[in-house]
Nucleic acid binder design. Sequence first.
DNA 1: TGCTAGCCTGTGAGCGCTCACAGTATCCAG
DNA 2: CTGGATACTGTGAGCGCTCACAGGCTAGCA
Lengths: 341, 341
Amino acid sequence: MKQIRAGSTTLNDVAEDAGVSYQTVSRVINGHPHVAAVTRQRVLDSVRKLDYRPNLMARGLVTRRSHTIGIVTFGSTYYGPAQMVANIDRAIQERGYRFAPTTIPEMSFESLAGAVQELRERGVEGIVMITPILDINLDQVRNLCAGTPFVMIDIAVGAQLPSVVIEQQRGGRLATEHLLQLGHRRLAEISGPLNWCDAKLRHDGWIDAHRAAGLSPGTSVESDWSPRGGYLAARRLLDGGTTFSGLVVGNDQMALGAVRALREQGVRIPEDVSVIGFDNIPESAFFEPPLTTVVQDFEALGRQSAEYLIALIEYPNTPVHQRVLYPELVVRGSTGRLTER
Amino acid sequence: MKQIRAGSTTLNDVAEDAGVSYQTVSRVINGHPHVAAVTRQRVLDSVRKLDYRPNLMARGLVTRRSHTIGIVTFGSTYYGPAQMVANIDRAIQERGYRFAPTTIPEMSFESLAGAVQELRERGVEGIVMITPILDINLDQVRNLCAGTPFVMIDIAVGAQLPSVVIEQQRGGRLATEHLLQLGHRRLAEISGPLNWCDAKLRHDGWIDAHRAAGLSPGTSVESDWSPRGGYLAARRLLDGGTTFSGLVVGNDQMALGAVRALREQGVRIPEDVSVIGFDNIPESAFFEPPLTTVVQDFEALGRQSAEYLIALIEYPNTPVHQRVLYPELVVRGSTGRLTER
DNA sequence: TGCTAGCCTGTGAGCGCTCACAGTATCCAG
DNA sequence: CTGGATACTGTGAGCGCTCACAGGCTAGCA
């Protein structure tokens, strides 16, 4: 019963088979009223018989709706971005949308522009940008999207663009304050790449917390989010002769690497050095020792951005605003009171 | 200079602006020959001025080409599938394709069918299925795709379908034999969900290795790929009174959890129990102790499946075959010789 | 019988684009 | 000056679908 024709079955094929006009078939497919029950059934039978599937490109061409949302990511294999995408996907799917992914190879405005252009060519109805680029001109972004609704994730708090953010700076403060409260006075930091918004903001929070406590910030080294990067960064700290009893690390993976580097030098965690990470990846509760970390609620982030973007699409008058989520501290075995040695 | 019109700029707008016919503009856009240099420049200027972007849906409707490949995944946030998708993306992008993702909520044929149907409605030119479902009828799958080229990943070796697989059974053997060679005779296993192809095949390899050594396989418990799952599974083994000096774990995350459970009971790794995982996630070299594991070359897998699928699309006569990749052992600190206690 | 209202169905047009083809202009061999 | 290549450009049609509209039919009421 399969069609042998070049293209697949069309509305007209079904119409012919059912002995009605193409319009009637269209009505049945789209569940419009005013189709006699008998006719509807006859059409449905033909649809099944010919295995008809509507052509979404043709439909989109005339309705100007694709029910597709574009997602631009940078570093989509990192834990954070991957979680965001997965959660956005879940949320939009519930609302009848799907997504078109684009990964940009480098964090430049040109790359972002290219990705946005491509998505617009593909006819997406809205765009989520998970592009923690620090030095972009927000006006340029607005201009770039030119009419296509968009939501940005993880940009600076206070930006005058539709956005959903986790207050990373507060996260950085939270982590640092936790160590300070445990009595630690000499801290060090391994940050993520500082051209990433998240990394920079967490770093700023680290500075804030020091200032608030009347201390000057300790040594900070920059790394690349990876376990190996964390390992090498910790080695750099140790080799540089930095002394510290508390270490704030930009994410859990790097923390893992840092812990390994420290232990290799005979440093005990948390007796000699307390270590804290960010993200609360599923692994971190099972690290040795279990890692204290700052939780990011990616589920809420995904849900909020999906909701917001779809509101922007379906109700264009939705006012531009920013949704701010707050990170939370999870205390585990890798941090403890400062012990006099 | 922005267009205020409802739809965006079209070929006709550009044609009018440049004082040529729409066809000439089309020719310029698509880089066809036989356009006078002056005309080409004039068109290009108008294109820039009006910020014209071709409508891919309209183009796809007539050319019947979308340059889009559908990817169906189950559990796209797990390390393996996520890596495969990322690598496929990279490979197809180099060849001028993009991808449309679909995640199926459960591992049933109905879910798979739904996903494939949706992708075909969207006009994808080929489909990659990363759906390690064990009990699917391969004929049904062939039928489902009906003309649309597809490649399956991680199905059984020997299946008569276009597919790219890593020989997981060999991986299971490799891991088990490694422990046997170190002198261990009483082994236990924590497998992934056994309705997953990978998990089942690794488990089969574990049995094979035992048989080949004239041993009967030790206790095996099933878990869910997660660190917590591995932790709980190890607890189950210990609580059940199983004695073993070697533990094969279905992936690195579960191995992490298992190691934690063992250490909590005072079991030393590798002195008392050797542990081996699968996947070689970036973290596992930094675990305590560094984890011995079986490497999966997801990069090659992604590249091969992309290449194969695109061959199938562009040269329909490409013969159906299976590409088999082999896993490799990486020995680290979590496994060691059996020591008499 | 006529007329309106309501249901059901069909017709024309066009979304933005690329095919295939039909021109027109230019050039050089005959 | 003709003919036929060869460059360049324009015209018609149609991809598969949904709009807006126009009709036909039945029922209901005067």
